[in-house]
Computed example of a mutant assay.
Amino acid sequence: MKRKHRSAKSKSRRRRTEATQSALPAPLYEADVADGLEALAAEEVRRRLQPHVSMEPVALRGAVRFRFGDAPRRLFDLKTVLAVFQLHRLDVPRPRALLGDQHWRALCTAAAAIVHLHPPGAFETFYLSAAGAHTATMQRIAEGMANHLGLRRVQTPDEGHFLMRIRRPPEGSAGWDVLFRLTPRPLSARAWRVCNYPGAMNATVAHAMALLTAPHPDDIVFNPCCGSGTLLIERGLIAPAARLLGCDIEPAVLACARENALAAGLAERIEWEAWDACQTPLPEKSVDVILSDLPFGGLVGSHAENERLYPAFVQEMARIARPGARGALITHEVRLLNTVLEAQTAWRVEQVLKVTLGGLHPRIFLLRRQVW
């Protein structure tokens, strides 16, 4: 009888524990996003993570916040965000209180759980990002967390595998936020990028541009000025296409694009050609989608060259685009491209998105080929 009684009590305790756990809110996460692409990133989060996700009703620039109640590894597959952090909001008056026994043990446990999501050795270095990171309190926090995780401290965020942030809540709430990045590298650092090239496009922005063209499996997609292949590779990874074609006049750049496409598993699906983007051999009205990262005139080209390039480029793209074709162009030469587009009638500008990334403020122009 005693054994049955103990068994019943054990089951009762287990049910109470499970009920308590299910009543707890799902872990809170915050994703860094290119400023200007928050809505697109939020849509991807909702689409990929349902039914285990709930978006937080707070408007943030350059970030999307949500709760997610399933395996954190699923967050590694997000493509339109730069990085994902687990967010812990602590009701403390100042950072020194984070070193208190209860808070510190909870933070150490959460940080160690993130490390254990990855194979041994994935994290080697630690970096703390915080206002006043040089103060004695912040140094104690950084040293203590690095020691707990067995990681070497570094002085720049680019060197840090485990990235920890401490800040005031950006929306003005009380307390302090502690954030831990979920991955040793930003999600924008794609595994397929085995060949880097100066001026290479950010992969998350490229993914967003490809999505904005409403990909369809029957699309013939052309990527003039393809560089190291970022735009076309991201488009190829989203969905099938009838044809994926990129061109550039630099042989070394095309070789780099081929390496990246091979690493992405797309070597057989993408064609790379050494063509002048303003004089292609493509037939008239033969392309459904045009994606391009136009020369900004900084690392690649110059403003004087762009004044000659942009009008000829827009004219050639109008020649090869089918009626109703979609275009997504990104450039920092906003005034110049605006002037060129206003002087022609073949393309209709449907939307212009301002993006802030790495200190630059380019625009994404979404275009539609007029139907006559």
Rank of each mutant, 00 (worst) to 15 (best):
W275A: 08
A312K: 15
L299Q: 13
V349H: 10
M317Q: 14
P362I: 01
V355A: 13
P295G: 07
P281T: 06
D288L: 15
R322Y: 03
W275T: 03
A328M: 15
I320H: 02
E259G: 02
P281F: 04
T356G: 08
D288K: 13
A312Q: 15
T345K: 12
V355M: 08
A328W: 12
R258D: 05
A343M: 14
E350T: 04
T331S: 11
L329I: 09
W347M: 06
T280Q: 03
A321K: 00
G298E: 15
R319Q: 01
V289W: 05
E305D: 07
L353S: 14
L329V: 06
V314E: 08
L357R: 08
S292M: 03
G327R: 07
L299A: 10
V334K: 12
N306T: 07
L291G: 12
E350N: 13
R269N: 13
L336Q: 06
R269K: 11
L262V: 11
H361K: 05
C256S: 10
W272L: 05
R308K: 15
E268P: 03
A274Q: 04
H361G: 00
A321S: 13
I320Y: 01
A257L: 04
V355E: 08
G359T: 14
A328P: 15
V300W: 06
K285D: 07
N306C: 15
G298S: 13
A267Y: 08
L353Y: 04
V289R: 07
A255S: 03
P283R: 10
L262P: 00
G265W: 00
N338F: 00
A346I: 10
A343P: 12
W347K: 02
T356Q: 09
A255L: 01
